[in-house]
């Protein structure tokens, strides 16, 4: 897999990030080396190997359905760059 400018632009779009030309070049190099590293796994025969999503042999970790108290709104909104009427305020997204 080659990391070209088109792919970098697509990733910028998905992650809502804007990279400078310099950062783009660096990202291209970094991503290429990551892909190459992971590509090594393709050399293995995984025909009969079940894909693993968790390293632990453990299932059914549940909590009982009991409602507890939530956080104070002031704390929840503490790090919000903008807030209004008890809500987080963000650029217009509603169509």
């Amino acid at each position: 897999m080659t990391i070209d400018n088109k792919l970098i632009e697509y990733l910028e779009e998905l992650s809502r990030l804007r990279l400078t030309e310099e950062e783009k070049e660096k990202a291209k190099a970094d991503l290429s080396s990551i892909i190459n590293y992971v590509d090594k796994l393709n050399e293995l025969d995984t025909e009969n190997t079940e894909a693993m999503s968790h390293p632990f042999d453990y299932t059914n970790n549940f909590r009982k359905d009991e409602a507890g108290s939530s956080f104070d709104r002031e704390l929840i909104l503490m790090n919000a760059p903008q807030k209004k009427n008890g809500c987080f305020r963000v650029p217009k997204t509603v169509e």
Binding site: R63, E66, A67, S70, R73, L77, G86, C87
Partner: peptide, 22 residues
């Protein structure tokens, strides 16, 4: 359910904005 899927905040409808949040 009484509580949310991954935390114990209430699922009650309504309520002041961002008061059922953790």
């Amino acid at each position: 359910t009484k509580s949310k899927i991954f935390c114990s905040c209430t699922t009650e409808f309504g309520g002041e904005p961002n008061t059922h949040v953790c």
